[in-house]
Design a protein around this nucleic acid. Structure first.
Ligand code: FES
Ligand code: FES
Lengths: 120, 120
DNA sequence: ACAATTTCGGACTTTTTTGTCCTATATTAC
DNA sequence: GTAATATAGGACAAAAAAGTCCGAAATTGT
């Protein structure tokens, strides 16, 4: 269990700002939380099972998987846009990229101090 | 030359709303414009030369071509993120998809009434 | 020169997103 | 049971984005 206070200090971002993010992630199911002393936040499932796709789903949404990339009302082979075929392949590639990585692996890879989350 | 009035009617979107978009596209170089009667807007270069990439560049920006897809401060082989390699391929695929289509081709393909731009 | 038409660019308003703060509620240890 | 500590959730504020409007400037035809 990690508390907001602790995490906010480590990440050097405002307490209340972080609080809202974490609470949202609890709501989305990615984290669990516990109140009271010794309370805090923890992963909602084993790190091995949390993929980048889960995170993108919680933070940005995954509408890209079924929406037309050119913005047309629907994406289907019935009425394909100019890049429908090409996009189908790329979209699948992105999906595979996201589901193929879990945060247990990633955490292991990212043990270098150079890696710091940053506001886009 | 097409006027705002005419286009707004065809697309069934507010006049002033469209005006701002067109003026922005002139500023970005995608369109040219002329004032006065018989004035209006026209393509800034031959339709054959305007690719989807130009349009994405003008509307959304093309930061995706050199930014880390996970949001880290920089994207380079020196300090690759967990999906840097995979993303490099996909990113290039997207780029090729965008530069490989010009609006002359697309216009020809999209002569069907089913195709209507829509606010996402 | 004048009147009509059309874009230009900034001001303004509204809506959405982002960020902050405060009170309530749950949990723990004593 | 009480005090301390932690998250929950809504209210509030600020900032950004999206959309609207209007007067100015340019162009055309008479
Ligand atoms: S219709 Fe455009 S991506 Fe499928
Ligand atoms: S470092 Fe993340 S995509 Fe290159």
């Amino acid at each position: 269990m990690t508390s907001i206070k602790e995490l906010a200090k480590k990440l050097d971002i405002p307490y209340h700002f972080l609080a809202k993010i974490l609470q949202d992630l609890v709501y989305k199911g990615l984290l669990t939380s516990q109140k009271g002393p010794t309370g805090g936040f923890a992963l909602g499932m084993p790190a091995k099972d949390i993929t980048l796709f889960h995170i993108v789903e919680a933070i940005d949404g995954v509408g890209f998987t079924n929406r037309c990339v050119l913005g047309f009302p629907e994406c289907s082979g019935k009425n394909p846009c100019a890049v429908h075929e090409q996009w189908a392949g790329l979209r699948d590639g992105i999906y595979q990229m996201l589901v193929g990585r879990n945060i247990a692996e990633i955490a292991k890879e990212m043990r270098k101090p150079e890696y710091r989350a940053v506001a886009r």
